[in-house]
Design a protein around this nucleic acid. Structure first.
Lengths: 159, 159
DNA sequence: TATTGTTATACTCTATAACTATA
DNA sequence: TATAGTTATAGAGTATAACAATA
């Protein structure tokens, strides 16, 4: 351990990140999601797309905005989903430059399986906490983040 | 919105994921971390490596285990960090097949900047919550997950 | 002309398989 | 022989730049 780390960490938790480093925790949470998604053969970006389309059809530019990626990345991500029949591409009638994306029923099933896999893995990890009430609290408070994202996007959209 | 989604969502939140879909929330949390890390020119895997090395030097196989990736992926991730002078590779004296990795002081500085960037972005989003006490709770409870990972790894290591 | 999306290309992360060096 | 790690190669996600189709 380097000097900075030694100064930051309490003596009885020598292997941990510094206290309050919740950014690193979020990074590990991400890895756990990836591991769970691998069981249903889905990547993190694909899971995000399916989740967005679960709320209704969306054109490429809307997906690119919400995913915070470039349009060419949307093409790449969706290519795989279309090839597997999880998403349908369809032309937009009044503006034929645009391409809309629709979740197929098979896509909905895979999305549900993905939700189950991810939630199951995260719940397993939460149960490692000694206090069962803390496990519940850890899970429930991800719902707080869900609300935060909703409010955040609403605020950004209103700008 | 498809029929399944319509059935799951409450009428006043038509654009949201289904209630309790905390797996999707974790997936979006991951994206926010990536966006923040881009400001310090770091990827999510690189951020995880720097965080691990902050606790002390580690050989490739140990990093592969903790990162849940194959050894060749460790080589690829670390290559970029070594090229930037954030990590040093060094031979292990008593077993020269092994390669140890050490966080440089510049690496420690970039890691600190990354922590600041990620925590700042997540805090911004949490502040979108109407109730300020909920923002605090959302942030604090990521610390609960930090503890959960610690306990989970301890349990896995003890197997 | 401007906009939407795809294609071409390059870089990173990931894996599997083959290889080198060491044990 | 077995193990640790790298290299070779391939596929996915990302970006930028160039392009085609449409407005």
């Amino acid at each position: 351990m380097n000097a900075e780390a030694a100064a930051r960490n309490s003596p009885d938790t020598p292997e941990s990140g510094r206290p309050g480093s919740f950014g690193r925790t979020a990074a590990w949470l991400a890895k756990q999601v990836e591991i769970a998604l691998a069981t249903v053969d889905l990547s993190l970006p694909q899971y995000r797309v399916l989740g967005l389309l679960d709320a209704g059809p969306a054109v490429s530019s809307a997906l690119a905005d919400r995913l915070a990626v470039r349009p060419s990345s949307v093409t790449a991500i969706v290519d795989g989903l279309v090839a597997r029949g999880l998403v349908d591409r369809r032309a937009v009638v009044d503006d034929r430059r645009r391409v809309s994306h629709v979740l197929t029923s098979e896509g909905g099933q895979v999305l549900a399986a993905a939700d189950t896999a991810v939630e199951g893995r995260l719940a397993d990890i939460a149960r490692s906490l000694a206090d069962p009430s803390q496990a519940t609290r850890a899970i429930d408070d991800l719902g707080l983040w869900q609300q935060a994202f909703r409010d955040y996007h609403a605020a950004v959209a209103a700008r």
